[in-house]
């Protein structure tokens, strides 16, 4: 992270005496593997597909996890799901925070994709709060250049365009 002004180099005045300062970067200097299940999910996103995993009770979890949230069994049966689905709950962000998926007002939503039993968290670019409702259908807007991350889904948009 760049520091805009270095206090150590700022001119000293009576009101603001010079202070000792040093830049400091907090970082983890190691890499980690995303593992066989999340790795496959993220790899599929890069290819423009969405895959979930089947749990012990037969439910399709999207996003998938390596272990069953109810029984803790290891999971490995992948299931392709659609790139459109239903909003199960949502919240309207009138003032987006830095680093969030969209810089203009948007909705956070949990979205149950076609063929999935659990919803996925993402952003919906609906334009206005009036275009949002629980139960509405939305579809993925894919990012043109995909890298194998959740951000490969740029956001969701109302199916059939904004109303």
């Amino acid at each position: 992270m760049a520091i805009a002004t270095d206090p150590a180099k700022a001119p000293e005045t009576a009101a603001s005496p010079r202070r000792l300062a040093a830049s400091y970067v907090l970082e983890y200097t190691y890499r980690r593997s995303v593992g066989p299940v999340i790795g496959r999910f993220l790899g599929a996103l890069r290819d423009g597909r969405i895959e979930g995993v089947r749990t012990a009770s037969g439910k399709v979890m999207v996003p998938p996890s390596e272990y069953d949230p109810e029984t803790s069994e290891a999971l490995s049966e992948f299931v392709a799901v659609g790139d459109a689905g239903v909003v199960t709950t949502w919240a309207w962000v009138s003032e987006p925070r830095p680093r969030q998926p969209l810089a203009k007002p948007f909705a956070w939503a949990l979205i149950k994709l076609d063929g999935a039993d659990t919803p996925l968290l993402h952003a919906v670019d609906a334009g206005t709060i009036d275009a949002m409702s629980t139960g509405m259908r939305v579809k993925v807007r894919w990012r043109a250049e995909r890298k194998g991350g959740i951000g490969d889904i740029e956001c969701f948009v109302p199916e059939g365009g904004a109303r």
Binding site: V34, I38, F41, L42, P63, T89, W90, A91, W92, V93, R97, P98, R99, Q100, P101, W108, A109, L110, L120, L121, H122, A123, T134, G149, I150, G151
Partner: peptide, 19 residues
């Protein structure tokens, strides 16, 4: 992997629960 990179803030997530 699938949540933090979107930077959902605590208020936004709580609002999902309230809805």
């Amino acid at each position: 992997y699938v949540m933090a990179p979107l930077w959902p803030d605590s208020v936004g997530l709580a609002a999902l629960q309230a809805r």
